[in-house]
Amino acid sequence: MIIGYARVSSTGQDHSLQIVRLQAAGAEKVYQEKQSGLDRDRPELAKALEFAREGDVLVITKLDRLARSAAHLHQIVETLDRKGVGFRVLDDASLDTTTRTGKLVFGILASIAEFETALRKERQMEGIAKAKAEGKTGGRPKTVDEERIRTLKGEGLTVPQIVKETGISRAAVYRALSE
């Protein structure tokens, strides 16, 4: 069975053209939703992946309709592959895991995605190491003058009075006093 998946990013957009193209490609069942691709919770995509059985093919019109990133695409196609389900993109004939060439192309894309992830992580770790070497610990700068809070407490003010005097939260006052 050919299963279609159509998605647009916002409620003002229309996915009827995607649906027509998917049906013309032989999709007997089409899952559709109007939701951002960045949204992790896409119920119709989850239903489509759950519905797909061995021998089925999941078809989309464009690659960006399915995944947020190359890594996410790889994760989805890996799930389909474990179930024995093929994957095809109408606008990119080279992305068709039902063919040897399509599997090769997808494998290359997956390798590139993995490489990009490793590079990104390496750069991030280098940046963190550099910041630590410069004495930067990350996070935003402190806005609470802990010394002033301790001074006010030493002068006999209560926590509610310190909160009123400084305009900071009760929790921040207690945190400053406990350090």
Rank of each mutant, 00 (worst) to 15 (best):
I3Q: 02
G4R: 03
A6S: 09
T11S: 13
H15M: 10
L22M: 01
A27E: 09
E28Y: 07
Y31D: 05
Q32A: 11
E33K: 07
G37W: 05
R40L: 15
R40F: 13
D41M: 11
R42P: 02
R42C: 08
A46D: 15
K47S: 10
E50N: 13
R53C: 14
G55F: 04
G55R: 09
L63Y: 00
L63Q: 09
A67W: 09
R68K: 08
A71V: 12
L73T: 03
H74D: 15
Q75G: 13
E78C: 07
L80I: 10
R82A: 15
K83E: 03
V85F: 08
G86E: 01
V89S: 13
S94T: 14
L104N: 04
I108Y: 01
L109K: 07
L109E: 07
A110R: 08
I112W: 08
E114P: 10
E126M: 15
A129R: 14
A129D: 13
K132C: 00
K132L: 13
G135D: 06
K136V: 12
T143C: 12
I149R: 06
R150H: 12
L152N: 01
L152G: 00
G156Y: 03
Q161A: 05
K164V: 04
I168E: 01
A171Q: 15
V173P: 03
R175D: 08
A176P: 02
E179G: 13
